[in-house]
């Protein structure tokens, strides 16, 4: 594993955050900003996420799966087309991941700062 403990290893990276629980979204944003990332979003809907992928060209993404009645599968699909890595942050287990979400690195909620750092580092390695 090519894990770096340096807090600046992702400095300047543009990360899209898709999460519909606002408190958790803000928490993830704070953690990513602490890592030095530039956070795009957080957004809570598929439409808003696709818009940001189109307009802001994120380098990677952190995706929640269940978004208030829809799933982030179309977002994952769009990211795969753009060849952008992403990880899934969810309360669900792996067998609930379908389509473009399948096989994605998975972090279970509640979000763990250390694990998020390791997973992000793997995304960029």
């Amino acid at each position: 594993m090519t894990t770096s403990d340096s807090p600046h290893s992702f400095a300047g990276r543009r990360i899209l955050v898709v999460e519909d629980e606002r408190l958790i979204a803000l928490d993830v944003r704070d953690i990513l900003e602490k890592f030095g990332c530039v956070v795009l979003g957080p957004v809570a809907t598929v439409d808003a996420a696709l818009q940001l992928i189109n307009d802001e060209n994120p380098e990677a993404a952190v995706l929640d799966v269940q978004l208030n009645g829809e799933t982030s599968e179309p977002v994952a699909h769009a990211l795969r087309l753009e060849n952008r890595p992403f990880l899934v942050l969810t309360a669900y287990s792996r067998r609930h991941l379908t389509g473009a979400l399948e096989d994605a690195p998975l972090l279970n909620k509640p979000v763990n700062e250390r694990k998020l750092r390791v997973s992000l580092s793997d995304l960029f390695s």
Binding site: E21, L23, L26, D27, D30, A91, Y92, K109, P110, V111
Partner: peptide
């Protein structure tokens, strides 16, 4: 199970916020 996990996520977010 999902609800509890979501709620724990919220509880943690409350703590870090």
């Amino acid at each position: 199970g999902h609800r509890v996990r979501n709620l724990l996520g919220l509880v943690q977010a409350l703590a870090s916020q």
